[in-house]
Design a binder for these strands. Sequence first.
RNA 1: AGGCCCAUAGCUCAGUUGGUUAGAGCGCUACGUUGACAUCGUAGAGGUCAGCGGUUCAAGUCCGCUUGGGCCUACCA
Length: 796
Amino acid sequence: MSGTSTETAAINSISKEEMDKRFDPAGYEQVWQRRWAEKGYFKAEAPSAKPSYCIMIPPPNVTGKLHVGHALQSSIQDLLTRWRRMQGFNALWLPGTDHAGIATQLMVERQLATEGTSRRELGRELFLDRMWQWTEQYHGNIREQLDLLGASCDWTRERFTLDAGLSRAVREAFVRLYREGLITRGEYMVNWSPKLGTAVSDLEVEAKTVQGKLYYVAYAVEGSDERIVVATTRPETMVGDTAVALHPEDERYTHLHGKAAVLPLVGRRLPFVADTAVDRELGTGLVKITPFHDPNDFEMGKRHDLPGITVIGLDGRMTAEAGPGFAGLDRFEAREKIVERLRDEGYLIKIEPHTHNVGHSQRSGEPIEPIVSTQWFCDVRSMADQALAVVRDGRVRLIPDSWDKTWEHWLTTIKPWCISRQLWWGHQIPAWYTEDGRCIVAHSLEEAIAEAGTDRLTQDPDVLDTWFSSGLWPFSTLGWPDDTQDLRTFYPTDVLVTAFDIIFFWVARMVMDGLHFMGDVPFRAVHLTGLVRDAEGQKMSKTKGNVMDPTELISEYGADALRFTLASLDSPGRDIPLNRDQIAGYRAFGNKLWNATRFALSRIPAEARVRETIDPEGLAAPERWILSRLSRVAAEVDARFETFRFDEACNRLYHFFWGDFCDWYIELSKPALSGEAPRPRVGDVLLTVLDRALRLLHPVMPFLTEELWQRLPGHEAIHSETICLAPYPRREEGWEDDVAEAGMEALTQVVTRVRALRTEMGLPPKAKLDLHLNAADSGTGRLLQEQSALIQFLTR
RNA sequence: AGGCCCAUAGCUCAGUUGGUUAGAGCGCUACGUUGACAUCGUAGAGGUCAGCGGUUCAAGUCCGCUUGGGCCUACCA
């Protein structure tokens, strides 16, 4: 509690002291963040008489560090939450973190390696202890960083995907899907990552175009002198061949039907099989079939009832089945060795360069090995159909909707999802095996024992894919499977804000799970943001060294400037080039807010106050005009927030404040405030417009607006404690005044024209001139006449 | 191989359902500092809206093609 006394001093200083000429975000940002938290302004209610508004944070990696992409998404989520909260909604932004299975386990494994040990050496239990230690050590970082950004999360509802409640939800979901027959265990071909030692899903495989080789190998035809030639990119798999395929209508090879080839080096008999999947144009039109090491061959093997042989093991090395001379070799060494033997024995016809796509492990970067193994699968077909339906009928809106087609394509072609991982960090699969090999799926060991009739059970060692638990996030975080008050209050949630790159990993699965388990969509809209890039539009990456750290940007420019920048760059369907000049520009905007407030506070009459509302009756044209403009901007900003056009909303706020308010209204108020040319209620109007402008800006720039708003005399009339809970300004139709706007338009044009003439004629800015105006019509003439003092003031 | 997106000022981008003279920020030029703000003010320069064709009274905007970028999906040995 060492910081308490200084904090109190800082809080006391707010709104009392003379304002500095320059604003300093570091001086108040975290003071306010702490105070808001202490006051509990962001705690949502359940139940509540107010309408609910809910956003679930896309949970970042619990041990991770927030990057600018997180800063972007968090800024948008906070903007929406603060906006709705001010509008009187019972707003919940639920924070939390993800255990991020492979990623986090790898970090700890790397650390163990530096200590000269490994997870295998430690054993599962000790290793998991280390994982939890690691998790606890870094867990606070995410909150710290969100606090720096000004996030208005409800931390009393924070969740972690591995906490007790969410783990229970995971087991419940697994058991239900198993009992519905949608989760099954079986031996299939999976994407295997030898380095990671685990199966991964199709999504975790990245196709990379590589320069490979196409090897042409001669196979003898059984019972004849004929030799046929097959082409392959992976000669090392040939020792696992069990057939040779040809196209049924390929006239070159009709004589081979019913015959067999002989596998070089091994001597195995390989029947010819006819299959239309064979491409006659490619290679020689004859394909070697290795059912256990190629996804196509696996399918073909099933169609023709071919046996499979596992010649590459889970460690990426050749098995004993590969035969003497190859067993134990790494798969790529084996390739060289086998090609060498083929050449030596005269089977190698030729080698051609060949460009093709090879699946690589997204996480480890190595080529994926298609391997047959026993895994758990989730058949998502029926769930996918439901997810298709809700996007088609608009119950879930993707924003921008250009993603609809991608959604459609992926979900219509979706295949069973391999959900088991050979890792330790994650939700262990709730399946137990009896000694006689029965498999019991249950919520708990106790339930499994009861069902099995024995306590001699072994739990399946595998854990679930991280995304299995993430898919449940919108309702597991609210207490599901129990029927909780939170669940009833906040589900379905309103908006999901996330980057497009996890639309399949996560968004689609939440929609499927939400519909399946809750019978309703998890959110009504998905705002998909672009990728944050550097100033040159390059992807940020550690290797390029162009990564921008949000924490550092905040300390340099302030959180409000970063937030404003990110929000104003968030145009639909576009990536976001972030450059420091722009952030600096919005920091200058902050300075503008600061100094406009400073001006108002130093010049208004003592009795001036922020008013809840103002009757324009009896006000002069400049006052009528600024109130009219304010009303229109409030309406526009509201409409833009509704449609997720944060860029346009920010733009309008920026131009209203800097252009209308500072460049014109403040200038116009000067002669009135100084007493040279008094006008009615100028002080009240100035403060009231400032109050509303700050409130309009609050969702984007929470810290500065609070800091300034607290200083406005009479702000308590709007809310007794904080701008965070003050009402969001709406349109005031009674303020909208076409006559005043037209009149001011004429005035500003006159002023601008005079200034331009002065420059064109090379007249010194201070030289006083005579100005004669001829109005085109009497109305304008009268107005300009009325405002002649102002015109003189602005044009000298 | 399919699909999606993009091309507008020196740079990064807006530009709604087609409708006056295409906008902003940064950068640039000139001038300006004792009274909110130099993180500023005033004025200004700068665009064949990638190219070609079409629809229309009217196209940056709609349609087709071309070129040049980017991304996603995909089992071609």
